[in-house]
Design a protein around this nucleic acid. Structure first.
Lengths: 171, 171
DNA sequence: CAAGATTGAAATCTCAATCTTC
DNA sequence: GAAGATTGAGATTTCAATCTTG
């Protein structure tokens, strides 16, 4: 899932292929992720007919003051591009779960607002989703493992930022 | 990213909302995943113009005997649906990186074969990808963290299988 | 009828403009 | 010109048939 051939020659540049242990760790992590998001997506789709990406949008709005958020903030919260979010909000508007309002002071701004229907759909979908998260992660891990996973995740996030700033310099 | 409102009433059924610690762990993990796959996808797209999903297909074939694999096996290896894989192979056939052959003994079967051009494209793309995996995960974590992550991933995979068999019974 | 694989249409996501307002 | 947001086109993924062979 990561590099070609099994042993072979060393790759170009100064890059080292992953050794056996490294490759196994990475493959296991990848496989876990695939299965995890497939399970989350599948549960939501089967029981509530909502894609995970849209569910996340509804949750972010439900947590916001007045159930409203500017497009930019919502995009940042859900880790989405502004384009993707804009399309998604249009779709959710069709469902009647979200409506758009114009920003009071900044006339460039749009605000996405969760409707009552949207809140109801979210309330109906949430228990099944949360139960799945409990089953497959929270209650599957020991408290120590949960702590470790959180620290590991933070470490990876930091490493990604470092990698991004370095690779942008290389250009 | 997981459940509506912040405190509120208990959800329906016997489900418990995530408490503060649980929610933070889950959100951190989700955010890490988003950033991680965005980084991998972005690097491959920027430096090699290959989507990660297609890269995985090329790697799986490069590891197979004779650089060939039946559609079903390849779908399982890459964690893809048969439909998705079939479309993807068609696309990669257009690129000249893969060709289809019919299975010698089972006349229902098709075999995807990595072409020389496909292998070259993979060889060119791999160092950058592997370096990214090193930067953002392998070398960012301590050996203990890598071990822990691998064990956690296996535990989650097991929990997902258990969850799947239970939820299918509920129907 | 089940297994292996493909197909076309609909849904979603990405990418590069575009448009308005700051 | 930059920031906030949208748009349309193209690419990928999903979903529900479909088709052939076991």
């Amino acid at each position: 899932m990561t590099q070609p051939t099994t042993a072979g020659e060393p790759p170009a540049d100064g890059v080292r292929w992953l050794d056996e242990d490294e490759a196994r760790t990475w493959r296991t992590f990848l496989e876990c992720n695939r299965a995890l998001f497939a399970a989350l997506e599948g549960q939501l789709q089967a029981e509530s007919q909502i894609p995970l990406a849209y569910y996340d949008i509804l949750v972010s709005l439900s947590e916001a003051p007045d159930h409203a958020l500017r497009m930019g903030s919502l995009a940042a919260e859900t880790g989405s591009s502004s384009s993707r979010l804009s399309h998604a909000i249009s779709r959710l508007e069709q469902c009647g779960w979200i409506r758009r309002e114009s920003h009071p002071s900044d006339r460039r701004g749009q605000v996405a607002v969760l409707t009552n229907e949207g809140m109801e759909a979210l309330t109906a979908a949430a228990p099944g989703h949360v139960q799945t998260v409990r089953d497959v992660l929270i209650e599957a891990l020991t408290p120590d493992q949960r702590t470790a996973l959180e620290e590991i995740s933070l470490t990876i996030c930091t490493a990604i930022q470092r990698h991004a700033s370095q690779s942008s310099q290389r250009v």
